[in-house]
């Protein structure tokens, strides 16, 4: 079956959805992504949906699920590039994807994730400094 490729970029994963997905493809993506987050220890997941002409409640639920599972695995999901018509339709449908972060494009999405990575790294350095002191 056709699968959606997942690219690793630094500590983030990038998924570009370019085809009109049928439901099994969406389910497969959810599974593949969960596995990849665990394997790579990725801290961020970018899902680029700028090519998608529609997002119905099934795909909406997939995005929600991915965000929830990623959060449990300590990765942040950012959905990027949603088209205006798609956004208006989702709101009308009653789906607001409350648990999902959004950004205008991949670049902005990366900025969001980089900011989070910077926070995580700061914490690591502080802990390292403390270890040094206790070692003295």
């Amino acid at each position: 079956m056709e699968r959606i490729p997942i690219l690793k970029m630094g500590r983030a994963l990038l998924i570009t959805i370019q085809v009109d997905m049928h439901d099994q493809m969406a389910i497969a993506l959810e599974e593949d992504l969960t596995t990849r987050i665990a394997q790579t220890g990725a801290k961020g997941v970018l899902i680029d949906i700028s090519s998608l002409e529609i997002v119905d409640s099934f795909i909406g639920r997939m995005l929600d699920n991915i965000a929830a599972v990623s959060r449990v695995l300590d990765a942040e999901t950012v959905v990027v590039g949603m088209r205006p018509a798609v956004a208006i339709t989702l709101v009308e449908l009653g789906l607001t994807l409350q648990g999902v972060k959004t950004a205008l494009n991949v670049e902005r999405g990366f900025e969001l994730i980089s900011r989070r990575l910077a926070e995580i790294e700061t914490v690591v350095v502080e802990i390292g400094a403390e270890d040094e002191r206790s070692g003295d």
């Binding site: 529609i54 088209r83 018509a85 798609v86 449908l93």
Partner: peptide, 17 residues
Amino acid sequence: GIVDQTKFVTAASEIAR
């Protein structure tokens, strides 16, 4: 229009499912 198209296609997708 593009927004109406998107709304209707989405509705069709929901009902078809």
